[in-house]
Nucleic acid binder design. Structure first.
Length: 721
DNA sequence: GAGCGGTGTCATTCT
DNA sequence: CAAGAATGACACCGC
């Protein structure tokens, strides 16, 4: 039985990568190795987003291992459960983490790369690389996952891993930690030295300088891709040299596209040299802490504009911990500055673990911002581009999953959700009832009630920038809040909402905003009884305000979405609408949902289906109209053709009549009676018999015979009828 | 401000 | 009989 090491130190990547692989339908036993993979900064960031470390002390240990959070996964456990931090079986953790599912996966290129490698049959390669790194790390200090060491805890003499340093590096180098250097103009020299020292070169300042110069040279080249391609073809020593160059690029921030491939190459080269360096006594350093430093430095480079302060990075295990906090000084500041994570999430509409792919892809991302932090100005936000590149969306990796897989995943997640969240029902029925009873009423009272809350937010946050005019000032915060509040779908955010609901007025504030956000679009819908008690309506200037508001908000959030989030419906609108009926019913039966929630979910599904049907109907109707127009055009053309043909036939008939008349005249002009006189064509006519003979008979007989024949024909027809 | 097209929704009927 | 499709009608919104 194996035990997890402190996640931030060595075990975090193991958990998350295993989740990803299981979600992707791939099975890869990477539990020995993948502790090298994931950068703690990512975990820190996700950790912060997932848990309110300020308001919920249960989350604190995982963020501050020194306080007792070594390897704990309390943040992943349902509330009230206190797993043994030191003896929790790995399998148990895996099951729980798997159950919690996607939103906890750090979105790193690491994951994507590994999945790609495994899917491409490169599992052995990846495993080998990681295994080598793991072996190196173990040899460096025996601080691996201790897979072969039975159920013992981490080395260091104690069973409690908290009591032991996780790497010899900390024991050896902590006392020799150099004093802080004065940062240069770019504040990078001290950081460089710190990281280089952590990489085993800290005691060699000359090497540092050489590396700096080398890195600068490489930086001038800007040929990262070419270098990567060349690595595979170069001999080992040359590849190692290249790897070191890559290290330098990482260290100096010239390479911001930090991928797992880069990382693995770096680790591979380091792990190869590690035993030798240990034997020679020249280097005892490389371990995950080094990786942590490296990744953190990389993260720093990625997180441009984030003030890291002037304090140097300390060394040693304790200092590593401190350095972790240092690296995430923005986060710690956020925590220490009383950041309400619920607010932060609500005001961060597109946080990285939101699951709705549509929203994630279609809406602009807002970085996480501590609302109350006075040390971080709006320019010091996490750069989207770098973070996006570093942390690709999980959904991108999940797109290959079938819908059934997602539904199964949802079921697992929802089970967890309901056991924690739905059962305790975090929303306030009174507030929700207000929301539903007055979805379209915009009373002055509501507006007034919003003012206070809004002013609070305005005084505390600069998140919702760009508000123009007083009305926009009023509405923008609510907009952000509502966007961020979508989806009680995510279990952890919902937990956070629970905390805030009971301890803070944040959600009440959001509900107050709902009053501002009322639209009048569907005020006649019976499913949502509208309140007519409040006579305020959007007229005049108010209508302008409302229109301006709707331009900014309702394009993103429909009424159903707002209601769903108000009721904490744990499913997305898209899922509710498009889910197969069987899955839909099983989903409803599997979860504890109130009648109101079930009713709303069914209404959403009905409306969604009907909306699609209406769209299809209109499209069909339009197609029919277009087809009919085409038919009309075709028929008109055909009519013209027939007219022309008719005229042509008429002309032909007239010609034939004229010819017949001429022939008649010609014949009669040649005919003579018995006395030799010409025959008058007006008195006689030619009659053709059946035997081919031609008779000249008086027209009176012809007319009388013709009448008789016509009468006979009529009689025959009458008899037939 | 009226008109028009697009859209969402409801009610009803049909499948 | 339930679920969904189809469709007419209505209301709202943006132009």
């Amino acid at each position: 039985m194996k035990y997890l090491k402190p996640w931030w130190s060595e075990g975090g990547g193991l958990l998350h990568l295993t989740i990803l692989l299981s979600l992707a339908g791939l099975h890869l036993d990477l539990d020995l190795d993948l502790y090298l993979v994931l950068p703690p900064p990512t975990l820190f960031r996700d950790e912060l987003l997932l848990g309110d470390c300020q308001t919920n002390p249960a989350y604190a240990p995982s963020l501050f291992p020194a306080a007792g959070g070594w390897g704990r996964t309390d943040h992943l456990h349902p509330k009230g459960r206190e797993p043994d931090p030191a003896a929790e079986p790995e399998g148990q953790l895996f099951r729980e983490v798997r159950t919690l599912g996607v939103p906890f996966i750090p979105r790193t290129r690491v994951d994507a790369w590994l999945v790609h490698s495994v899917a491409a049959g490169d599992a052995d390669g990846a495993h080998g690389l990681l295994g080598a790194a793991a072996a190196s790390a173990s040899s460096a200090g025996g601080v691996g996952t201790s897979a072969d060491s039975g159920s013992q805890a981490a080395p260091g003499g104690g069973e409690d891993p908290r009591a032991a340093p996780s790497s010899p590096l900390e024991e050896e180098e902590a006392p020799t930690e150099p004093t802080a250097q004065v940062p240069d103009a770019r504040g990078r020299a001290s950081e460089d030295n710190e990281v280089l020292r952590a990489m085993g070169h800290s005691s060699q300042q000359e090497e540092n300088e050489q590396r700096v110069s080398s890195a600068q040279k490489e930086k001038s080249l800007h040929q990262k891709n070419e270098d990567e391609n060349k690595i595979a073809d170069k001999p080992e020593w040359e590849a190692e040299k290249t790897t070191e160059s890559r290290e330098e690029r990482y260290l100096y921030g010239t390479d911001t596209s930090f991928s797992l491939e880069d990382l693995l190459q770096l680790l591979s080269s380091q792990s190869k040299n590690l035993p030798e360096r240990h034997l020679n006594g020249t280097d005892t350093s490389f371990s995950l802490e080094d990786l942590l430093q490296l990744l953190s430095s990389q993260s720093e480079n990625s997180l441009e504009g984030i003030s890291l302060g002037d304090s140097p990075l300390p060394g040693g295990i304790n200092d590593v911990m401190n350095s972790s906090a240092h690296y995430h000084v923005n986060i710690s500041q956020a925590i220490s500055h009383d950041v309400n994570l619920h607010e932060a999430m609500l005001l961060c509409p597109n946080n990285t673990f939101r699951r709705d792919p549509v929203e994630r892809t279609s809406q602009p991302r807002e970085p996480f911002l501590p609302l109350n932090s006075h040390t971080i100005n709006p320019e010091q936000t996490l750069p989207r581009a770098n973070l996006t590149g570093f942390l690709p969306p999980v959904d991108h990796q999940l797109r290959n999953l079938t819908s059934q897989d997602l539904y199964d995943l949802n079921i697992n997640m929802f089970d967890e959700i309901n056991s924690v969240s739905l059962a305790t029902e975090s929303f306030d029925p009174l507030e929700v009832s207000h929301l539903f009873e007055q979805p379209d009423s915009d009373s002055g009272l509501s507006l007034n009630s919003s003012h206070n809350s809004i002013s609070v937010i305005k005084s505390n946050s600069s998140v919702c920038e760009g508000a123009i005019g007083s009305s926009s000032d009023l509405e923008s915060p609510s907009h952000c809040a509502l966007e961020g509040a979508v989806g009680g779908y995510y279990p952890e955010p919902r937990k956070i909402c629970q905390v805030d609901l009971r301890s803070d007025s944040g959600f009440h504030r959001d509900l107050a905003f709902q009053h501002v956000l009322h639209d009048h679009t569907y005020h006649l819908q019976p499913s949502a009884p509208e309140s007519t008690s409040e006579s305020f309506s959007w007229t005049g200037k108010s209508h302008k305000i409302r229109s301006r508001y709707l331009d900014d908000t309702d394009r993103h959030l429909s009424r159903d979405e707002r209601r769903a989030e108000a009721l904490h419906i744990p499913f997305s609108i898209d899922e509710i609408v498009h889910m197969p009926v069987d899955s839909f019913n099983s989903m409803l039966s599997r979860h504890y949902l109130t009648d109101l929630q079930v009713s709303l979910i069914r209404d959403i599904r009905r409306r969604g289906k009907n909306k699609v049907a209406a769209q299809n109907c209109r499209k069909r109707k339009l197609d029919i109209i277009l087809n009919l127009e085409d038919d009309v055009c075709n028929l008109k053309a055909k009519k013209e053709t027939l007219k022309s043909e008719r005229a042509q036939c008429k002309r032909a008939i007239n010609i034939m009549k004229q010819k017949l008349h001429d022939l008649y005249r010609d014949i009669f002009s040649r005919l003579r009676d018995d006395e030799g006189r010409p025959v008058n064509p007006n008195e006689y006519a030619l009659q053709f018999s059946h035997d081919g003979s031609v008779w000249i008979i008086p027209k009176e007989l012809v007319t009388s015979r013709h009448k008789k024949e016509t009468q006979k024909g009529k009689r025959k027809s009458e008899r037939r009828n």
